[in-house]
Write a protein that binds this DNA or RNA. Structure first.
Lengths: 196, 196
DNA sequence: TAAAAAAGAATGAACGTTCATTCATGGTTT
DNA sequence: AAACCATGAATGAACGTTCATTCTTTTTTA
């Protein structure tokens, strides 16, 4: 590791710290109560430093959104490839997403907040959606093979993946806990919803 | 209608206007960009007048949340009583909620924003949850009768009611439209998810 | 290689603006 | 005239952002 790389890492570290701090504060207090001053303090940085890495607050939020969305998608398709049988592929993706939402709670809660709030520019939101294509393709395949109901991808998503957001929120509020066994039952619910 | 009532109506009118204005602004720009000055202006009222009806901004938001939540529950159980067969009762409630989410879009979007954001005090949120009891009772009944899978009420909600929030959001962003026929198919999806 | 110069990162204080809230006052109704 | 509703203007605090400056690292020069 040469001198150049060390320097680059240091830069990235500050950016990382800022993104992490923003995630934490927005999750804990909401966008309306996550001022730049607090973000800077939590990241261990002067307020002005933020503007070396981001244009303004909106840009910071947008960047965070896209970054988290990308990590979500990466996780969703781990171990999946599109030659798999539809049900197997779906099961892998579903469990990947469930793991993400139930373990990386902060990231998932942030995404859920962004998706239900006008805090992200619509244009950026659209960009973050593209990553999900493999799942949509899988569903098309399943419909062609007569395994999955011939429904819009929105309905399929709403009744298989989206419910996990609710369960995550309930778990976060200590109203409910999903263990391994219940998770299996829950997958069955999702599959029953869309299977033919 | 006597003078007293007219006076009371006038008061209520201003309060109503303020609640409506808040709903609109929070939906369009988010809590972080819905200042009291704009709320007052949209309601046709001076900023100071808000404080005749609400203690402060948080109190205004809390009141709006509880009011909308109550109207949601009222709508949900219209035409339902607990002597009905489980599936019939569930169908009535499900369609009621679907109608609410797809027609009273502003109210529904506001609730969804509140439920995914720390903008409402947890205590108030809990209060707004009580209204749903009849549905939970119905599910208990269905489980006892062996009609519905023996799952936690959270899973049942997540896979039948909560998906409607997603479909509403997609419809609001003009990505998708639910007509009568599709709505029927969608109910079937919800029912297949939880039926035994 | 050591000193000097330049460049780059990071900062704390300060800016203008906007925020939620209050206050002194004016109209209206009883 | 008393009580109440409503107000526009005023207030201090807090916001996002900028700026002049310092500290640190890299490059150049001798």
């Amino acid at each position: 590791m040469n001198i150049h790389m060390i320097k680059k890492e240091k830069i990235t570290d500050k950016k990382r710290a800022l993104l992490n701090a923003t995630l934490t504060l927005v999750n804990d207090h909401g966008f309306h109560d996550a001022p730049m001053s607090k973000i800077a303090k939590l990241a261990g940085v002067a307020p002005a430093t933020i503007y070396l890495y981001f244009e303004n607050k909106q840009d910071l939020i947008n960047n965070l959104y896209l970054e988290v969305k990308a990590s979500f998608s990466d996780c969703a398709f781990k171990g999946y490839d599109n030659t798999m049988p539809v049900k197997i592929g779906f099961e892998i993706i579903w469990y990947n997403i469930a793991d993400y939402k139930l373990n990386l709670v902060n990231e998932a809660a942030f995404l859920s907040q962004c998706d239900n709030t006008p805090m992200i520019d619509e244009e950026i939101r659209k960009e973050g959606l593209k990553h999900l294509q493999p799942l949509l393709d899988l569903w098309e395949q399943g419909k062609k093979e007569g395994i999955i109901k011939p429904l819009s991808i929105f309905v399929l998503y709403a009744y298989t993946i989206y419910p996990l957001t609710f369960l995550m929120a309930m778990q976060e509020r200590d109203l409910y806990t999903l263990n391994k066994k219940v998770l299996g039952e829950t997958f069955q619910v999702a599959w029953d919803a869309i299977k033919l």
